[in-house]
Every structure is written in C-alpha cells, then in structure tokens.
C-alpha cells in the first residue's frame, strides 16, 4: 500500500516536520545578509530577526562587524534603535557614520559582566530595538538562555559577540558562527544552525577599507622609527 504523492507533498509542507537533509523551515522574518552564498546556507535565508545569533570571533578587527554591515544598513528608521552593549573598545563615530550607519538611531550602553546581560534583556524586552550588538565574553548559559527567550519574542537582529574559546561550551543560541580572518576574506563557519552542519566554511569578501587584492600585492615597506637623539 502506498501513500499518494499529493499526501506526501502535504506532509512535507508541515512546519513541524524536519527532514534530515534540509534546514527546518522557519516562520521568523529574516534580514538578507548581502551575501548570496551565506543566505543560501542560513536556515531563514538571511540573518534571523528574533532569536539570538552568537558570533565567535577570533580577535578584534577580522571583520566581525563588517560582515553584518549590509544587513544593518537595510534596517529602516521605523524598525527602531541600534544598540551597542558593552563595546570592546571606543566606538569611533566618524567610521560608523562613514559606513552608512545612522548615528541618530544608535545608542551605546557601557556595562560589565552580569550588568551587560541584564541591560540586553531589558533592551530586548522594550521591543523598540531593530538590532542589538552585545559583547558578552563572560555570559553563562543561563544568561544566554534568558536572552534567547527575550529575543525570540521580538523582531530584533540580536547579535552576541563572544571569544572563540567558548566554542566548545553549549549555547542556547539557534545560530552560532565562528569567524576567522584570511587573506581573501573572512572565513565563516556555521557551528550550529537549524539544519545539518555545514561541510566547509564559507569565505566571504566582506567590505574592507581597502580592496582585498591589496593583501596579496606587494606592500609598501615600513620605514623604521627614527629615534631622535636624546638631547642632554
């Protein structure tokens, strides 16, 4: 006895049916990442709005923010505020403005440790955020779970940046990325997604202050610092 193909199709359309090969279809809104190769492997077809995205970066300056620039630029003024919580260094306003991020909708919250996680939760709870960028290196699983809960009821792009060394720790975030720098772009590895693991990392040529080709070309030689003779 065999089921009719129509019945099988109907079954496959169900949201709660998860097939081993594909990604779980997800009803949440997504924000196009600006990279077709990345959108193709993200379960929602873009960065999830609602739900935590954990970004494990192997150091400052490898492009951990530039990766999200195309998405952040798309956010409309009505969508709400962009809030930076516990930034790892001073936010250099001219650079943010120069890259097309609106300073008029940007807020910075300086906090440490548990206060930073608390602030994130409060901010997510307000429903007035379009994007949350938070640096929570020491947040534990409990704090992250609370954030995931708070975030899942919003339509906010919630990014939590954490160091690479926490990769083996379990995390409640439905999407986890590990980023590594390279000569031709940033290497994005999907550590966790609603779907099967990705075979190999993606290499994305994100926006940088100079073209990527400059990396492989000969560089201007550095002139050593001329020590000024000490005048007695």
């Amino acid at each position: 006895m065999s089921a009719s193909p129509a019945a099988l199709d109907a079954l496959l359309q169900r949201a709660d049916l998860w097939r081993g090969g594909g990604c779980a279809p997800h009803a949440e809104a997504a924000l196009a990442s600006g990279f077709a190769a990345l959108d193709a492997v993200l379960p929602d077809g873009g960065w999830p709005c609602g739900g935590l995205t954990e970004v494990l970066a192997g150091g400052l300056g490898i492009g951990e923010l530039s990766l999200f620039l195309p998405a952040l630029r798309q956010l409309e003024a009505e969508a709400g505020w962009i809030v930076i919580v516990a930034p790892p260094a001073q936010v250099h306003a001219p650079a943010w403005q120069g890259l097309g991020l609106p300073l008029s909708r940007l807020l910075v919250v300086e906090a440490e440790g548990a206060d930073a996680a608390w602030a994130c939760e409060q901010l997510l709870g307000s429903g007035a955020l379009a994007a949350l960028l938070a640096w929570l290196p020491s947040a534990d699983a409990r704090a992250l779970r609370r954030l995931q809960l708070a975030s899942s009821s919003t339509r906010c792009l919630s990014l939590v940046f954490r160091p690479e060394r926490v990769a083996p720790q379990p995390s409640p975030a439905p999407l986890r990325l590990a980023l590594r720098g390279s000569d031709s772009g940033v290497q994005v590895e999907l550590l966790k997604r609603r779907g099967p693991p990705l075979a190999k990392p993606l290499c994305l040529a994100i926006e940088r202050p100079l073209p990527w080709s400059r990396l492989t070309r000969g560089a201007p030689a550095a002139t050593p610092v001329r020590r000024e003779p000490h005048v007695a």
């Binding site: 650079a95 008029s104 909708r105």
Partner: peptide, 21 residues
Amino acid sequence: WPEPTDAPDTAPPPRPLWLHA
C-alpha cells in the same frame, strides 16, 4: 540623546570602527 545627523558628503579616509582610548 542622539540627534538627527546628515550623512557625510565626501567619502572619508579609512577609519576603524573601534578606537582604543
């Protein structure tokens, strides 16, 4: 409290997003 700002007219020279105090 942030105020409405105008986008810069000219392309700025490369500046980093993070600056160390």
